[in-house]
Amino acid sequence: MYPEKISETSKGVYIIAATPFTDSGELDLDSCDSLTDFYLDKGVTGFTILGMMGEAPKLTEAETLAVMDRVLGRIDGRVPVVVGVSHASNRHVERLAKTAMDQGAAGVMLAPVANLKTDEQVYHYFATMARLLGPDIPICLQDFPQVTGVHMSVGVILQLIDDFPQVVMLKHEDFPGMRKLSELRTQSADAGRRRISILVGNGGLFLPQEMLRGADGAMTGFAYPEMLVQACALFDQGRADEAEDLYNLYLPLLRHEFQYGLGLALRKETLRRRGAIRSAYVRRPGPVLGAIDMAELGRLIERQAQALRERGL
Results as ranks from 00 to 15, higher is better:
M1D: 12
K5M: 07
K5D: 11
T9K: 14
S10L: 08
Y14T: 05
I15S: 15
A18Q: 06
T22D: 11
D23A: 13
S24V: 04
L27P: 11
C32G: 00
L35A: 00
Y39C: 12
Y39M: 15
Y39A: 11
Y39D: 00
L40V: 12
V44N: 04
V44A: 06
V44P: 01
T45S: 13
F47T: 00
M53K: 03
A62F: 01
T64D: 01
T64A: 05
A66H: 09
A66I: 08
R70M: 09
L72C: 02
L72W: 04
R74K: 15
G77I: 06
R78A: 11
V79I: 15
P80F: 03
V83R: 03
V83N: 06
G84I: 01
S86W: 04
S89R: 10
R91P: 00
H92F: 14
V93D: 04
V93L: 01
E94G: 01
E94C: 01
R95S: 08
A100E: 02
A106Y: 07
V108S: 04
L110N: 02
V113M: 10
A114G: 07
K117W: 12
K117R: 15
T118D: 06
E120M: 04
E120D: 12
V122K: 03
H124A: 15
A127I: 04
T128H: 12
R131W: 04
R131Q: 14
L132T: 14
L132D: 04
G134V: 09
D136R: 07
I137K: 14
P138C: 10
C140G: 06
L141R: 04
Q142T: 05
Q142L: 13
F144Y: 15
V147G: 00
V150D: 10
H151W: 13
V154I: 15
I157K: 12
Q159I: 07
L160I: 11
D163C: 10
P165Y: 11
V167F: 15
M169P: 05
P176C: 14
P176N: 08
M178W: 05
R179Y: 08
R179P: 00
R179H: 09
K180D: 06
K180W: 05
L181D: 13
S182A: 11
L184D: 11
R185S: 05
R185H: 12
Q187Y: 12
S188N: 07
A189R: 11
D190L: 07
I196P: 01
L199F: 06
L205R: 06
F206A: 09
F206Y: 13
E210C: 07
E210S: 09
M211P: 03
F222N: 01
Y224P: 00
P225N: 02
E226T: 04
M227Q: 02
M227R: 02
C232N: 02
F235R: 03
D236P: 00
Q237N: 04
R239M: 12
R239N: 09
L246C: 08
L251Y: 14
Q259G: 12
L262D: 05
G263A: 11
L264K: 13
L266R: 15
K268N: 10
E269P: 05
T270I: 12
R273I: 02
R274K: 10
R274N: 10
R274P: 01
G275F: 12
A280Q: 14
V282A: 14
R284N: 08
L289D: 08
L289W: 09
D293E: 14
M294G: 00
E296T: 03
L297W: 03
L297P: 07
R299Y: 02
L300T: 05
I301Q: 11
A307L: 06
R309W: 02
G312N: 10
L313V: 09
L313D: 08
